[in-house]
Amino acid sequence: MSIARLPSRSEFIQVRGLRYHVRHWGNEDAPLIVMLHGWMDVSASFQFVVDHLQHDWHVIAPDLRGFGLTDTPGTDTYWFPDYLGDLDAVLQHYVPQGPVNLLGHSMGANVAGLYAGTRPERVRRLVNLEGFGLPATHAEQAPGRYRQWLDELRRPPSLRTYVSQAEVAARLQKTNPRLSDERAAFLSGCWAKQDSEGRWVILGDPAHKQTSPLLFHVEEVMACWRQITAPVLWMQADDTDVWHWMGPKEQAQAEIDRRLAHIPQLQKEMITNAGHMLHHDQPELLASLIEDFLLR
């Protein structure tokens, strides 16, 4: 039996020269939650959490640049600060003044965390779904990183296409075996579309696959996190699959905890029976925790 979905509507706005797709759920006069999706994902990824919210909310979720129905900037490299610039412009469009409730998953959570420390007056409460950051780097890695970037520029990346929407759904379930058939079918229609030849193509710019030539400076991120004035709800999955970014699980958890210690007002929640896509695996629990936190 198909699960009833709270309907969403699409809006397109101009953001820093790009035609941005923004998805809306709920009553526009209700309290606002802004949600930012992760890497190689789309705004519809939050549908299942939105479906379980019990109170009246206006949820808006943009497709970030180069994802979903938002324009690609036409570049061969994506610069992370542009996501902050886009978020600032999106908030300026919808809420020119005052703080908002901000939520992000994975890459979107990293954007949200940096933004909350850069413009603390604009964030009322922050929900971080596994915005770990990246492995720390050191200066000696710079020559190799630049060489890798230059080498990759010579052979632009491409994304696989699929025969059918069902094949796209199967691909999503391969990445996340917890994803039900019904949820995979829904997401596949938002994550990909049919081209003129009948193949299903992922709604993501292949340039996102390029290695960034810039090193990840974790101390800069921590400096931003220390400036966050909003209460922060951190949610982490007990079976997350991103540990390999930072080494063995025990080592990675110690590094994550070290980073989180820089956030002044932090509430931690471990979500059981969930992987990195915890908003797909446990949406009812997440919705409950999110509302308890935002309404406190």
Rank of each mutant, 00 (worst) to 15 (best):
E197K: 07
N110T: 02
G189V: 03
A252Y: 03
G247S: 06
H52I: 08
R23F: 07
H37I: 05
A139V: 15
D292L: 13
K174W: 00
Q267F: 07
W243N: 03
H276V: 01
G98F: 11
G113F: 00
V111W: 04
P264V: 02
Q54R: 11
C224W: 04
A136D: 14
W39I: 06
L286A: 07
P135G: 09
L53Q: 08
F132V: 13
G108V: 06
L295D: 12
N110S: 07
A185V: 04
P283V: 10
H276A: 06
K209W: 05
V15A: 09
E28V: 07
W149M: 11
A237K: 00
I13R: 06
A116G: 02
L134P: 10
L150D: 12
A169D: 02
L126T: 06
R65N: 08
Y162F: 09
L102S: 05
I60C: 09
L134W: 10
P206L: 01
D88V: 04
Q227R: 11
W149R: 12
Y94E: 11
I33A: 08
G275K: 00
G98D: 14
P81A: 10
N110A: 07
D292G: 15
G68D: 11
M270R: 11
Q165E: 07
S43H: 09
V95L: 12
P81W: 05
G108I: 05
D239F: 02
A142H: 14
P96G: 12
M277G: 05
D151A: 15
R178H: 06
L84S: 04
D181V: 12
Q141K: 11
V242T: 10
L289M: 09
L114Y: 02
D29T: 14
R183L: 12
T175S: 01
R65W: 03
R124N: 12
Q14G: 11
W25H: 02
W25G: 06
R178E: 00
P81K: 02
F132D: 05
L18A: 08
D63V: 15
H93C: 11
N273E: 12
I202N: 01
R259A: 00
H244A: 11
V95R: 13
E220S: 13
A139D: 14
R16W: 10
R160G: 00
D181N: 11
L103C: 11
G198D: 02
W234C: 05
Q47C: 08
I33H: 06
L286P: 07
Q165R: 03
V95Q: 13
H217K: 13
N101D: 10
Q267G: 05
F293L: 10
R178N: 01
H93W: 09
W39T: 06
I13D: 10
T70F: 08
M235C: 14
L36M: 10
I256C: 02
P96F: 13
M40T: 02
G144I: 03
E28N: 08
R259Q: 08
R259T: 05
D29M: 12
T211F: 11
Y162M: 00
Q251A: 13
V163I: 03
V34L: 14
A274D: 04
R178P: 02
R259C: 05
